[in-house]
């Protein structure tokens, strides 16, 4: 008998999930379920379960759309945001949540990401960022740190990595944030805010891949990788109370940028309304 949360929001017959022991994806998927549950029961901002749509692409992370028991669609590689765009345009009332991985989101689907961000289309993108292509056997991805090893970078990665949260923010996303596995409670709060945000919101959640990234780079097991997150990632409140000296080599997890740019479907509806008026007149 799994917990009430799992019973309510996941497809039990598909569980236990097939992710490796210690994989961070399960924690992020639970964070999303908890965030949705708390929003459904929030008297100030209630959202309806039937208005939630989960869209995913391809990759380890994207299996989450199969496990989560909502209106869900598991799409082609990199195209989750493209499918989500169609869903949101057809019915702007829906809360469309894209669950994607670092490769799916920033390599194969990189173009969709930057243009959805530029349009400020009201989607929520949760990126399960584990720094590697796990499902296909540990090839380096656009977020693999420079110098780290992967099956396709046996002597170290030459590329410099993307910072997906900053990439989205630079492309015009009105909400961009980072989360991680260790600080799960903080990440749940960020995901809640991202879902409630009207424009394009992206949460880059640092996952862990002990099987490929951890093993190739001698980062230890899941526990060691989580200890690294505990010691090197700092939630907003603590980060801003630290001295510049202490902040060196630490990374902020929290909301990086927040704007109230006009949302795409609303602007589109205005055009439609204006055209109808002209026609009648």
């Amino acid at each position: 008998m799994p917990s009430d949360l799992v019973h309510l929001y996941m497809r039990i017959d598909h569980l236990p999930q097939i992710w490796c022991p210690g994989c961070g994806n399960g924690v992020i998927m639970r964070d999303v379920a908890v965030a949705i549950d708390e929003l459904i029961h929030d008297e100030d901002n209630p959202i309806k379960r039937e208005d939630i749509v989960i869209v995913s692409g391809i990759g380890c992370s994207s299996r989450a759309a199969g496990y989560l028991d909502f209106n869900s669609i598991h799409t082609t590689h990199g195209r989750a945001i493209a499918f989500a765009t169609g869903i949101k345009m057809a019915n702007p009332r829906l809360h469309v949540i894209v669950l994607t991985g670092d490769g799916d989101c920033s390599a194969i689907g990189g173009n969709h990401l930057i243009h959805a961000a530029r349009r400020n289309l009201g989607l929520t993108v949760i990126c399960f960022n584990n720094d590697i292509y796990g499902m296909t056997g540990g090839q380096y991805s656009p977020t693999t740190p420079n110098g780290d090893k992967a099956t396709t970078a046996p002597y170290g990665n030459v590329d410099r990595p993307f910072d997906i949260a900053q990439l989205a923010s630079g492309a015009g996303a009105s909400f961009s944030a980072r989360g991680d596995i260790y600080h799960a409670r903080e990440t749940i709060e960020i995901i809640k805010q991202a879902i409630l945000h009207k424009g394009f919101s992206l949460v880059d959640v640092y996952s862990i891949c002990p099987t490929y990234y951890g093993r190739k780079n001698k980062k230890g097991d899941a526990v060691e990788m989580l200890k690294w997150q505990r010691d090197n990632l700092v939630p907003t409140a603590r980060y801003y109370s630290m001295s510049e000296e202490d902040r060196k080599n630490k990374k902020l997890v929290g909301i990086l940028s927040f704007n109230d740019y006009p949302e795409y479907t609303e602007e589109y509806a205005k055009i439609v309304a204006a055209c109808r008026k002209t026609k009648k007149g």
């Binding site: 917990s3 569980l15 236990p16 999930q17 992710w19 399960g26 639970r30």
Partner: peptide, 13 residues
């Protein structure tokens, strides 16, 4: 433990 279990194998009731 429940918050960070990736497999939902431990929880409070």
């Amino acid at each position: 433990c429940e918050l960070r279990c990736p497999d939902y194998a431990i929880y409070l009731v």
